[in-house]
Design a protein around this nucleic acid. Structure first.
Lengths: 142, 142
DNA sequence: ATGGGTGCAAAGGATTTGCAACATT
DNA sequence: AATGTTGCAAATCCTTTGCACCCAT
């Protein structure tokens, strides 16, 4: 049950579960496309016509502050979100702009904050960048 | 000689070495603070009063496109640059905002683009986030 | 003389803020 | 009633663009 999962996640992360927040969390938990703020807004506004972009911005920020979602900043023009907060690497295609998971590649696991060289590390992000399968075949067919 | 190093680097990366570009590259090669566009501008404008912010923006973008520098996007509000293009991890302090190198931690080395799961990967970035030494001691003394 | 580089001013776009209205407890 | 949440409009801020000027080849 996606609805319950979203509810549980918000509670676990200490985020008060309003209707909008539940909808946004549900969206993140059922779309693994790493949506941008605007994609979330465009899709959800169909179901919740009163939803505002501001709320989506505020909510996603709130989620990432509470570690209920991950903000992914590939570069200054491509910010998106991932509802999966388990550590995993991301791949960014420089040609089509898609962001996909790279579960195959290892990311050091942090179940809790860890001391590293005198610093407390509580988050690790790994980005691979290049050209994806699809763009490569498209390239060849030219 | 820093000036020559900067000159050589630009030539190697195929960037025409104008006076401004040399100055900016020299700045990057002698400041390991991971400066923002504005920090580069504020510092260099003292020596080159005619320098414009636009040129700094354009130049840093040009550098990163030519792999002469690395754009670091910690989050949507903190974009900075690193003149060191050898692969190395970065640490971001959530408290003071500083970005420092983490040479101790490994980053997969790519001397040339590599196939990974059907994708061509030509760049890997690793970010550690947490609280730095200084902020930790400051915290304790309260 | 030509092509590229620079810098101003203006445009553009994304994100945040202020604030009033609204829900929910 | 009180507290927190939402959403509109406006403000802000960062970055890019258009264009004229300038420099170096």
């Amino acid at each position: 049950m996606k609805e319950q999962d979203a509810y549980i996640k918000l509670i676990e992360k200490g985020v008060h579960p309003s209707a909008q927040r539940l909808a946004i969390m549900q969206y993140l938990m059922s779309h693994f496309t790493h949506p941008t703020v605007d994609e979330v807004f465009q899709d959800l506004t169909k179901k919740i016509p009163t939803l505002s972009r501001t709320t989506v911005y505020n909510t996603l920020r709130l989620f990432s502050e509470h570690n209920a979602a991950q903000m992914i900043t590939i570069d200054d023009h491509h910010v998106c979100y991932d509802g999966n907060t388990n550590p995993h690497a991301h791949f960014y295609c420089k040609s089509c702009g898609k962001v996909v998971d790279m579960h195959e590649e290892e990311v050091p696991y942090l179940s809790k904050p860890k001391m590293m060289n005198g610093k407390i590390v509580d988050e690790i992000q790994v980005y691979y960048k290049g050209i994806c399968n699809d763009c490569m075949s498209r390239e060849k067919n030219k």
